[in-house]
Structures are given as C-alpha cells and as structure tokens.
Amino acid sequence: MTRGYWRRALPVYLMIVPGLLFFIVFKYIPMVGISIAFMAYSPFDGIGGSEWVGLRNFHRLFAEGDFLALLRNTLMLNLFDVLFFFPAPILVAVLLNEIKAKRFKAAVQTILYAPNFISWVVIVGITILLFATGSGGINQLLAGWGFERIELMTDPSYFRWVWLLQNVWQGAGWGAIIFLAALAAVDPLLYEAAAIDGANRWRMLWHIALPALRNVIVVLLILRMGHVMDLGFEHIFLLQNSMNLDVSEVFETFVYKVGMTQGDYSYSTAVGLFKSIVGLIMVLFVNRLAKQTGQEGVF
C-alpha cells in the first residue's frame, strides 16, 4: 500500500463510513434475530433465553400440505411480474423520451405517476365496482348487450392477470422515473450525430436509447431476482377470496394467517429466512451470469 493510494483513498473511505455505520448498527447488529428461526421464541425469555429447536420450524414449513402450492403460486406471480411488469416502466420511459413537446411530456408524466399514490384498497375497490359479476358496471353492460358475464374477481384463471394489470397500472409510470434519469444522461450530441447520418427515430431508439439503459436494467433485474419469493402482502390479500384461493395463496398471506395472528414469531422468521436464502441463490446465479456476459453486476 503506497502513500499515494491512501492519500487518494482516505477521503473516499470517509464518504462511505456514515452509510456503513448505518448498515452495521441498524442492519447487521439486529441480524442476531435471524436465530429466532431456530428457536421456540418467547418475547419474555428473549433471544438469549428462548429454547433452541434446531430446524423444527423449517420441517414444519416443508411438511405443510400446501408447501408446493405456495411455492408454485409465489413463483408464478413473480414470473408474471418479471416478464410483464418489469419491462413496463422501461417502455413508458422510452416512449416519454421520444416526446419532444415539453409541456405535453410533463403533463403525461405526472398523470402516469399519480396512480402510485392510490392505495390498494381503493384500486381493488374500483375493480370490484367495475367487474363484480352481478352488480359490476362492465358486467351489466356486457349482459345488456347479450354477452356472457366475466367472472373477473372470482374465476381463478383471471387472478394473476388482474393482479399483474393492477400492478402495471399503479407502478409503470412511477418505475419509469429511474429509466428516464438514465436516458437524461445520454449526450444529446449522439442524437445529433445520428440524425446527420440519416438514422430515423426507430434506429436511434435501438442504437442510442436502449444501450444507455442497459446498465440500470441489468442492475435492477439482478436486484429483482433477490425477491423472487416476495410479493406485496396487502395487494394479494385484498384480491384473495374463497374462489381463487388455489392460485392466490402465497407465503405472505399464509404466514399472516398461521403466524402473525397467533403471535408465532419463530415460524414467521423461519419462513422469511427460507425466502431470503432462495433469493440469495437466485442473485448469486444471475449476478454471475451478468458478469460472464461482460456486465458489472451488483457486487
């Protein structure tokens, strides 16, 4: 280690220290709590005093009659999400980036961004209002014109699509912001040069805009893989009903029913740990894949 290196590096380390302190104090120290997954935890005995039960909580999880169904439902929804939701904000960003009329662009962007602030209770409520089998506005129209009613909220085959489309509706405009920021970093000279070369807008999109996004897309996709077992609880719970239970029961709703309401903290922690480990494996795999194809990766 040379003195030159340290002169250069010391200020950089100093920049990192406050953030690092945060991670140590509020993230790493509490990680002793992961041990709760291997205990029959009682809040009165604490982490030090509760009884160790080894892998019992995990055995219980894997022995649940519904374990495979839970796994399948969770992965399927995540697959839908990665395949169809993940690209949506990219598409929105690319489209917005192509709009030259400034005021129009600003207005449209604000409109697309706004649904992010409407809570799931309201979004699901509106959907039921429109699509309820009997009283839903759209079903009444359909019936009036002599068509079959669509059992959108209760037919299990629609569940994943309803969930997905509501996600897109709520999140596509919001998610586009990060990609717009990446596009904003593109040097406008590139576009001018391409125009002089006679490239049309399609080709500029393909050769300038998308490559500019590649880096952030890869990073976001890797991070997304870490959450292949996670889904928002509230949204699914609100959409869930007796008829779609076969496809809508996921780890979050399951843990809510058997763990939290009973105060079974150890079991909830064990399920959480299981999900994290699956996420870690996925990320390690995808990160490596990214590096092999010449990308930066996240670590």
Binding site: I128, A132, G134, S135, T154, N241, S242, M243
Partner: peptide
C-alpha cells in the same frame, strides 16, 4: 335463481 346476491364471494 338469483335470490342470493351474485357477488357474495367478494
């Protein structure tokens, strides 16, 4: 027979 609310499930 439409005596019970068609939307009772939700």
């Amino acid at each position: 027979e439409g005596v019970l609310d068609k939307d009772f499930v939700t």
